[in-house]
């Protein structure tokens, strides 16, 4: 009776799977977040689970590329709340990966600081797709021993004196924005062919001075701590905070050319199976105390609480949709393949 034993084994497997599923989901179901590091602090998720009975499951991504690939893979069915930066919001909405925000359900919208309350940045064709949640910049991290006064220009990254001691973020779109800003191009998000060629040459020149590229905050700080790095075109304030926590004497500065600023939004996945849980998390996250805690722990600017020490918002160039992602990826690939 081989088949009976097989049947027993199969049903046991099914039971085990069911049991494990039951163990994960709380009494009010589950909310699945697709987020960047620092957007779902364990202290908050614990409090949320206690308050609402909804279990939180977090999937972290290192960049927009990874995020969009994950969302595309199941048309959003694997996630309920997704943090999307303003520059990619339209792409997500056009691909129908995220759903318009139901403002009736967003009871905590009143907590937003006045500057963020309009949600203009996330509104296309009359529908709002995202709620501002956190902001920051792609600034310069520098070693304070090597630079007693903060470098005032990005050009220091190209200085041969620091060859092999510079690391740079690896992100097609943001690297091209960065190159354009350093070159003083007025609109770094809409480059002409001529400007694109200049940016490409500038980035290839930078590559020769680099130790390596990195992706993600952890990757950047790990490489910094294991090698003799003194300058980093960083993914944000968190890079400096993480390094300071590890005991490295580093500073964070927005050089005179300016820097890309970003604004991440909370969005509801178009494939969500638990809309109520999604809004419950958004309403929870948009409290002043959570915003203040996020600023303190991760150095992101909150949209519900005026951030301390982040006085350079007026020098940031807020990220917009670039003229053509596909073209930027192709150019960036050529930079990375160059000798």
């Amino acid at each position: 009776m081989i088949w009976t034993s097989k049947a027993v084994a199969a049903s046991l497997t099914v039971f085990a799977l069911l049991a494990s599923g039951a163990a994960y989901a709380g009494p009010k179901g589950e909310v699945r977040l697709l987020a960047y590091e620092g957007y779902a602090d364990p202290a908050w998720t614990e409090e949320f689970e206690k308050e609402t009975g909804i279990t939180v499951k977090v999937t972290y991504v290192g960049g927009v590329d990874e995020q969009i690939a994950k969302m595309k893979a199941s048309n959003g069915k694997d996630y309920d709340v997704v943090t999307v930066d303003t520059a990619s919001l339209k792409a997500f909405a056009d691909q129908k990966l995220i759903a318009p925000i139901d403002k009736q359900k967003l009871t905590s919208a009143k907590n937003l600081l006045p500057a963020f309350r309009s949600m203009d940045n996330a509104t296309f064709d009359g529908a709002t797709y995202g709620v501002p949640w956190a902001w920051g910049s792609l600034g310069l991290v520098y070693d304070k021993k090597t630079f007693p006064t903060p470098p005032d220009s990005w050009e220091v990254l190209w200085d041969p004196a620091y060859k092999g001691k510079v690391i740079s973020l690896d992100d097609a779109n943001n690297d091209i924005n960065f190159g354009a800003i350093v070159l003083g191009i007025k609109d770094p998000f809409n480059l002409t062919d001529q400007q694109m060629a200049e940016v490409k040459a500038k980035l290839i020149a930078l590559k020769k001075n680099l130790l390596t590229y990195f992706a993600g905050f952890d990757e950047g700080t790990t490489i910094w701590s294991e090698n003799n790095v003194v300058l980093m075109f960083s993914m944000g304030e968190l890079a400096a905070i993480n390094l300071q926590k590890k005991g490295f004497d580093v500073g964070y500065v927005i050089p005179k050319e300016g820097a890309v600023g970003w604004l991440d939004n909370l969005t509801v996945s178009a494939g969500t199976s638990n809309t109520d849980a999604a809004y419950a998390w958004m309403n929870f996250a948009l409290q002043k105390k959570i915003g203040a805690d996020m600023a303190k722990k991760y150095g992101y600017g909150a949209t519900t609480d005026a951030p301390q020490g982040m006085d350079y918002a007026d020098r940031l160039i807020w990220a917009q949709n670039p003229e053509n992602y596909t073209r930027r990826q192709a150019v960036w690939n050529e930079v990375k393949a160059s000798e």
Binding site: G63, E66, I68, K72, A91, N173, Y325, T326, Q329, N333
Partner: peptide, 9 residues
């Protein structure tokens, strides 16, 4: 890999 991110190609 790079073709499957934001390039969406």
């Amino acid at each position: 890999f790079s073709q499957f991110g934001l390039a969406l190609n």
